[in-house]
Amino acid sequence: MLIMALTTYLIRLIPIGFVRTKLDNEWVRDFLFYIPFCVLSAMTFPDVLYSTTPAGATTPHFVSAAIATMVAIVMAWKDRGLVRVALVAVLVAVLVELLLPVIF
């Protein structure tokens, strides 16, 4: 925990604390511009499909996660806010989890 906090802090401290020159390499600027999107995307896919599985479950709950993810993507596409997208996705996942045993 300490190591994570220190790393996070040093990343923020070093530039504002010491650097006083401007970035002029366009490739580096573009690269840094894309990094957040790429990181979030790589973290989300495919792990989101395992995200509704309760701790200790033996098989992944793919169905609820996949349906909720699709709903979230559609809502995000329509520019719905973060909190709304997340809440609706959780709701959808809960509904699927409740309905699945009834259907099968």
Partner: peptide, 12 residues
């Protein structure tokens, strides 16, 4: 378990 998807959906 279901709340586990919330943060991912915020990323989405």
């Amino acid at each position: 378990g279901c709340f586990g998807i919330a943060l991912y959906c915020m990323f989405i």
